[in-house]
Write a protein that binds this DNA or RNA. Sequence first.
DNA 1: CTGTTAGCGCATTCAA
DNA 2: TTGAATGCGCTAACAG
Lengths: 369, 369
Amino acid sequence: MGPKSGDGAEPDPPRPRRRPTIQDLARAAATSPSTASRALSGNGYVGADVRARVLAAAERIGYVPDSNARTLRNRTSRAVGMLISDLRNPFYANLAAGIEEQLRSAGYHVIVVNNDGEEEAEVEGARTFLAVRVSAAIITPVSDRAVRMLLNDGVPVVQADRMVEGLTTDGVLVDNVRGAREVTAHLIGLGHTRIALLIDETDWTTGAGRLAGYRAALRAAGVPMDPGLVVPTKFQPEAARDAVTGLLARRPDVTALFAANNMLAEGAFQALQRAGRRIPDDLSLVAFDDVPWMSMVSPGITTVDQHTDDLGRACARLVVDRIAGSADGQATVRYIEPSVTFRGSTAPPGAVISLAGPGPGGVAVSPSS
Amino acid sequence: MGPKSGDGAEPDPPRPRRRPTIQDLARAAATSPSTASRALSGNGYVGADVRARVLAAAERIGYVPDSNARTLRNRTSRAVGMLISDLRNPFYANLAAGIEEQLRSAGYHVIVVNNDGEEEAEVEGARTFLAVRVSAAIITPVSDRAVRMLLNDGVPVVQADRMVEGLTTDGVLVDNVRGAREVTAHLIGLGHTRIALLIDETDWTTGAGRLAGYRAALRAAGVPMDPGLVVPTKFQPEAARDAVTGLLARRPDVTALFAANNMLAEGAFQALQRAGRRIPDDLSLVAFDDVPWMSMVSPGITTVDQHTDDLGRACARLVVDRIAGSADGQATVRYIEPSVTFRGSTAPPGAVISLAGPGPGGVAVSPSS
DNA sequence: CTGTTAGCGCATTCAA
DNA sequence: TTGAATGCGCTAACAG
């Protein structure tokens, strides 16, 4: 509180100034609202001198056009909706950051809705997007309802990371098949043949692709497919931990484990630690989706980098093109090519022999190089 | 593409239906727009039967009120701006998630702007917030300009995580002094006396508080303050890595290291690994701000948990109160009490003994680079 | 080149 | 209890 405040007993907050409208601006620039509008937007003729006056006045009085009025009048907004599954998961956080960054540089602002994987929240989010008249929406879909709502009202949708069946929209996907095939092939190349796949779902394009890539690599190498090595689990690290613990007990012959995403990898890693399995001596571990902890632990985890930032930026670019109408009538689906980052968690399956006997106890990972 | 599509040669995209307005709704419900409005908003008298008809019609025709028109008319919106420094940093990602979650449940939607710590982007974001007429804004400030712009137009601001000097706004801060004091005291309790503090800034309330807490703990324990142990660095992990590498060479007597945030901790951890220093045998490590990798590495890092989700939710609650006017005229500043999570990275400075004398291995076994 | 007019969709007067 | 009229701030006709 400033020093001079002791005259009245009126405690009302310093009523903010009325926001200047284009009328105020016109007055300040000694012209009419329409001319001021033209000067600001650059549409239509305006004398150079007048334009300068308007711009100066705008700066001086702090005029900021009301985008609500603009949207109402123009029937189009600079807002884009972003419906994300879980901002706390670094995958989605990076995706969101990439999207926001690219959209902002293109002059759009983003309305973010986190749905925690809940269909209801997703539909609510779509409703919000309709209400604010977003120009487009980017969605990591959990169901098709939200997408359909938007499409039904003519809002262009870009599906990110995965696409729901039966919907024709733009989308950006990761080449899951290739990524999974490559890491799996890497394991096979090291000599592994009993490679378990830890996976939470195969209904979405993500899970289905990763399973397909895993199978393709086995098939290509002539390694027999063992259904008992495809371990289903839930999306939570805890569930994955339990699943891996069970696998370890059930199948001591397994020499390598492929976790289909970062959440499962987390659980798998913890399960291996707790079971005292050394990586990669006792078991090799690979994952899909590179996240920070994978390069912090020792040894680091060999993983498929999805280039999440690029994924996000690609979504944003598709949105911008679609809004501009420069995209043709067809839906565009782009693919991000993932790449494998090799770290220390993979090695030939030598130690499996000593696993039969009571292995050297102690904690899994040593911090030394 | 459906099977039946081969009649016309017209490739124009299926022109979306015109969005139903309240006029359409009124027509569909056989009443007037004003009555329909009252029926939807619940303001004013409406016959029970009419209300039912309107609601049903709204559902049937998929009517979604245009929030732009509403905002224009009501001079108030349900939008809140969120200006965040770096969505890719788990601290900010969690903060954002907490904010979004709480605001959404209160009926607001959030416009997110990531500024990457850039003042220009921050000001641009504030401009966007003004343009869309947000009801309030939550900001992790990098400068005071954006905040001032908003305040100048009467937009309530909640500063999150840190507050810039000279500005009177609501805010939610972490008790940095206490958190830093507690971890430092923990180290002292273990017997450490030469504890280095790795810190990137002391101008913001965050850095200043953590430095103060560190000092307070030393003072309270009668441990002499050694200026050479306060190691300045930049906010990047790489810079922190170099700073720690330098410290290790310069001060082999240091037995514990306190990294002031998660970025610095990352660099510190890497520097220790590369230098072949074992944690906690050779050096104890603690950090401020718990992030996932700290519990994944072995041993885990003892750290100050800021309860980032709570921090975000508290910001959102403050915003809602302020908008509702239920907050009094005074600015409210809340404090989140952090807590220390003890993990394996801290232990008594046993190894330091052998480090003092020209013991076996001399100055720490360092096959560094 | 510039100003006047009108209407985007909505909620609120004010009359009926 | 309902409906007609009005204007929020802006921009695109359409005259001047």
